[in-house]
Each structure stands twice: as C-alpha cells, then as structure tokens.
Design a protein around this nucleic acid. Structure first.
Lengths: 144, 144
DNA sequence: TAAAAATATTAGTTTAACCTAATTGTAGGC
DNA sequence: GCCTACAATTAGGTTAAACTAATATTTTTA
C-alpha cells in the first residue's frame, strides 16, 4: 500500500478533472485549481511521478498512469457521494457542500462510502415513492 | 479567529477526555491517547499554552482555559454526532466508526453538524415509530 | 534520605506542505 | 531568426508535525 497523503490525493483528483476540461494538464492548471503556486504543484507532480502515479516529461504535460487513474477516480467517487449527501440530501449551499466534501473525502474507506451510498439511495427512493415521507424529511431538516 | 490546526484540535479533545478519566492530565496521557511520543505532546501543549487555550506549569498538570474548553467541546460534540451516524445509523464496526469520526470531525462546521443531527434524529424517530421503516432501512443498508 | 524509576523537557533531525525569488525553456509575433 | 512573454523549474526558506537521544526533575522505594 502506498499510503498516499491527502495532499497528493488532491493533486490526483485535480489532474483527473483538469484532463476533462482541458484535453491536457499542465502545472499551471493544477496550481490554479488547488489554489497554490506553481512550484508547489511542480513538487507534488514530481513526487507523484516518483510513485508512478503520473507521467510527466519536463516542460510537457502531465498524465495519469493506470494506477494513478484508479486512485484519482476512487477519491473523486467519494467526493461525488459526499457532495450529493451535503447538497442534495441535507440541502446545504453548493459552495459549502463542495468544500466540506473536499475535506472529508480522504477519510472514508470504500466500505463506509458504500454504506453512505446505500443510505442516500434509500432516502432518495422513499422521497420519490412517498410524498408524505419527502415532506416529513424536508420539515425535519429545515432550520425553523 | 485562531485558525487552530487539526492536530491541535485533537490535543484539545484529548485533554477534555483525559480530564474525565484521570482527574488530571499529563503529557504522558495525551501522548498515549494520541499515539505519539511525549516530546510531540509536549510541543503541542506548549503551542496551546501560547494560544491561551490551556494552562500548564512545568512538570505540572495541564488544564483547559474556558476558551480551550469551548473549543474542545465543540470538536468533541462533532465527534459524537459522527460516531453515532457511523456506528448506530450505518451499523459500522465501533473501531472503524471511531476512526472515521476522528478523521472527519475537523471538517464540519456547526451548520453542517446541525443538519446531520437533524437527519439522525429524523431517522431515529421514524425507526422507533414505524417498524416497517426500520426493517426497510436495515435491508437497504445490509451488504447482501 | 539517597538511589532508582518514571516522567517531562530540551535539542536537534526529518518530512510534507507551502512560499518567494531567480533561472531556464518554449512558442508566437515581428 | 530574434525577442518577448509566459510557463516551468530550481534554489532556498518557513511552518507544523512527528521522531530520537540526551538531560532535568519529580516521585517512589529500599
């Protein structure tokens, strides 16, 4: 096991998302997305390269290895579940839901994420099937 | 605002809990509880002293200031809500629920914690009132 | 009470993040 | 083809957290 730090997980996730938006990924993109300066992003990419999670030739663009992609997708899938939980289920504002998901995503293992997913699916199903339930839940969560 | 690091929040929480178990708190207790060596705990306590969140005379015991206690209790209350969520609601094993709560507690603001609490209360109430609901939920969460 | 054991503290090192400032490389416009 | 602007990299410094090893203090016990 690699015991990837939270920081490096964030970089992997950022690479995955930049890839989708930009067709290729550069130091600058990561720095912007993560709110750090380029030398910081550069150092992180260097370490990810050492760990064989990305490939990066000097002054070129950055690519995930299969292993890096697996890792990145694992983090991102947790992110999505959490975002859904905070934004949709709990009705928190998008920005806060996003930031909270970011902070937490590194601390869930797959089992836990699975459980949360099941709970969300259950709540969603009940909400669709039973308008009474939906109303009750909404009322219970409101800040009256 | 003090912008307390996660690490220091952990120490405050540990002081609060040691207090309840031991009548007084020493460097050694914190180190044991947090799984670090005494010099690390010592350094943390020194920093907390500088921040006026604890009082600590050399070779003596460690006490929370009112401000430190408020902070410690805020962290611990989040911990409890999360533990309840993972262990009771999701049915995860105690140790895992505990560890997960520890990792996450620093990333929730009061609003978010409030929302989660409301959701848990709602689920608990429904579960008590309606055996059918309880069974459905249990089934939805099972790893069949 | 003096020696031994336990605990606390200090000193100095390491690692992972970040930063700024300085340098090197690349690519487009003239 | 050269110059400029932008981007990437390197160099060197900071902070928070941990560690080990060494020293100091307190407590226990013989």
């Amino acid at each position: 096991m690699t015991a990837l730090t939270e920081g490096l997980q964030d970089y992997l996730e950022a690479i995955l998302l930049c890839e989708r938006e930009n067709r290729f990924v550069r130091t600058k993109h990561l720095a912007e997305r993560l709110g750090v300066k380029s030398p910081s992003a550069h150092a992180a990419v260097k370490e990810l390269t050492r760990l064989k999670l990305v490939e990066h030739e000097s002054y070129g663009h950055i690519e995930l290895t299969p292993e890096g992609r697996r890792e990145a997708e694992s983090v991102y899938s947790k992110h999505k579940v959490l975002y859904h939980f905070f934004a949709e289920t709990l009705g928190m504002p998008p920005k806060l839901a996003e930031d909270t998901a970011c902070g937490i995503e590194h601390h869930l293992n797959d089992k836990t994420t699975g459980k949360i997913t099941k709970l969300l699916d259950f709540i969603e199903r009940k909400t669709k099937e039973d308008p009474g339930f939906a109303a009750e839940l909404k009322r219970a969560l409101s800040d009256e």
